[in-house]
């Protein structure tokens, strides 16, 4: 079973596990508009709140070890939009959305364990290189993306991650001193740079 088939199966079983024959509800533009309105009457504010909430949902499903965080986040919004369309009045939307997401996590975990039982697996071990095989391409892309950074940022990222454990700590201390920033600020800056760099690498790998 490939990843997409697995995702479809999960979403179908998570859609309404108690009645698998029930008709699948789809998100209409009108229902999505009503969902946005519940976030905020102002459309721009609503869009921003929706995006923030979605980013949190994706993180939540990822943290909980769910296989398809983006799809699960969208499924959560579908369920909330359906409740709104059914006339449910929601006072605190962010909290409500998280509640729905928690229920969905339980369903996903249940469904995953059923699948494992059926396949006779005790616990699935994931292999990080199984579906991310482009090691050489990734390295080439990373070098290209590093070349696009400013020299200061490139030096920062190299010095921040260079060396083994002890050497790394010392490098970071020196780097913080040289830039005149606290270690925590340096950590955050390195983290942001790394995220930006990873985004660039993924784009480059997909284009390759």
């Amino acid at each position: 079973m490939d990843a997409h088939q697995e995702a479809d199966l999960l979403m179908d079983s998570a859609e309404n596990p108690s009645s698998p024959t029930s008709r699948k509800w789809t998100l209409t533009p009108e229902a999505f508009d009503n969902l946005l309105k519940t976030f905020d009457p102002n459309r721009d504010n609503a869009a921003q709140k929706y995006l923030d909430c979605r980013a949190n949902l994706v993180r939540f499903f990822e943290w909980r070890g769910c296989p398809f965080p983006e799809d699960h986040a969208d499924e959560t919004f579908n369920r909330v939009a359906r409740k709104i369309a059914d006339g449910e009045e929601i006072q605190k939307l962010a909290g409500y959305v998280m509640g729905v997401a928690r229920l969905l996590v339980l369903e996903i975990i249940k469904s995953l364990s059923k699948q494992r039982e059926a396949l006779g697996e005790y616990q699935k071990t994931y292999d990080e290189v199984a579906d991310v095989p482009d090691t050489e391409i990734r390295i080439d892309c990373l070098q290209k993306c590093l070349g696009q950074l400013s020299s200061d940022n490139r030096e920062l990222i190299i010095q921040y991650y260079q060396g083994d454990k002890r050497e790394k700590i010392e490098n970071r201390r020196k780097l913080g001193e040289r830039l005149g920033v606290a270690i925590n600020t340096l950590r955050m800056r390195a983290q942001r740079l790394r995220e930006r760099l990873q985004g660039c690498v993924e784009e480059c790998v997909n284009a390759a």
Binding site: E62, G65, P67, E128, D134, L142, Y161
Partner: peptide, 22 residues
């Protein structure tokens, strides 16, 4: 931790970063 493909990509990126940086 490695349940999602996104995280597996993060690990692949970390490996590439460690290689290039070192």
């Amino acid at each position: 931790f490695l349940a999602s493909a996104e995280r597996r990509k993060k690990v692949a990126f970390a490996k590439a970063l460690a290689t290039v940086v070192n």
